[in-house]
């Protein structure tokens, strides 16, 4: 039986965005503390600390969880994905592209958590209905957007992933603007 005495620290290791990390934690450290303070993966946001706003959503073994409600010690040996891991090889994830093109981002604070919930949905259900989408992001509060453009973006990203040709999206044509050259 593993035992860490009151006030003591211990080292855990787990995978973040594909890479193995080792961090020192205490019993009341939460996954979000490890990500933000320990690993400086500050894309994961804290909005409420009680699992209500979803800004801290990450994937734990592929499932969306509130990282503010996961004791760091429970993550030992498991796999965590954060918003920083969505883009691969310098290419944005189709969800990220769709969020930009559908103006699904306003202040951007809920965006990372929202993207992770959406990513979990699309892995499991590549062709979700609007209701599926609304349900999948129902644990992610957004105060700016009223959710509609977010839901449209997720729908569009699902289409792109299914078609596997992310370059030619309908939304891009509709927006009538050239591809952003930033980054």
């Amino acid at each position: 039986m593993k035992e860490i005495g009151p006030g003591a620290m211990t080292t855990i290791s787990f995978k973040v965005n594909g890479g193995l990390v080792e961090v020192e934690v205490s019993a009341d450290d939460r996954l979000i503390d490890v990500l933000r303070e320990g690993l400086r993966l500050t894309g994961t946001k804290e909005g409420c600390g009680v699992g209500e706003c979803g800004a801290c959503t990450v994937l734990l073994d592929g499932k969306p969880v509130n990282s503010c409600l996961v004791p760091a010690l429970q993550v030992e040996g498991r796999e965590v994905e954060t918003v920083e891991g969505l883009a691969k090889d310098g290419r944005l994830h189709p969800l990220q592209e769709a969020f930009i093109e559908h103006t699904a981002v306003q202040c951007g604070f809920c965006t990372p958590g929202m993207l992770m919930s959406a990513a979990a949905l699309l892995r499991e259900n590549p062709d979700p209905t609007r209701e599926d989408i609304a349900r999948a992001i129902s644990g992610n509060l957004c105060r700016c957007t009223g959710y509609h453009q977010i839901m449209a973006a997720i729908e569009d990203a699902a289409r792109r992933i299914r078609a596997a040709v992310p370059e030619t999206s309908e939304a891009e044509g509709a927006a009538g603007t050239p591809e952003a050259r930033r980054e």
């Binding site: 039986m1 593993k2 035992e3 860490i4 005495g5 009151p6 006030g7 003591a8 620290m9 205490s26 019993a27 009341d28 004791p71 010690l73």
Partner: peptide
Amino acid sequence: MSPRKPGYVVPETLAEA
């Protein structure tokens, strides 16, 4: 080390718990 931090045990069996 802080006295307020709880300890943490991870039992491997129900009996241990």
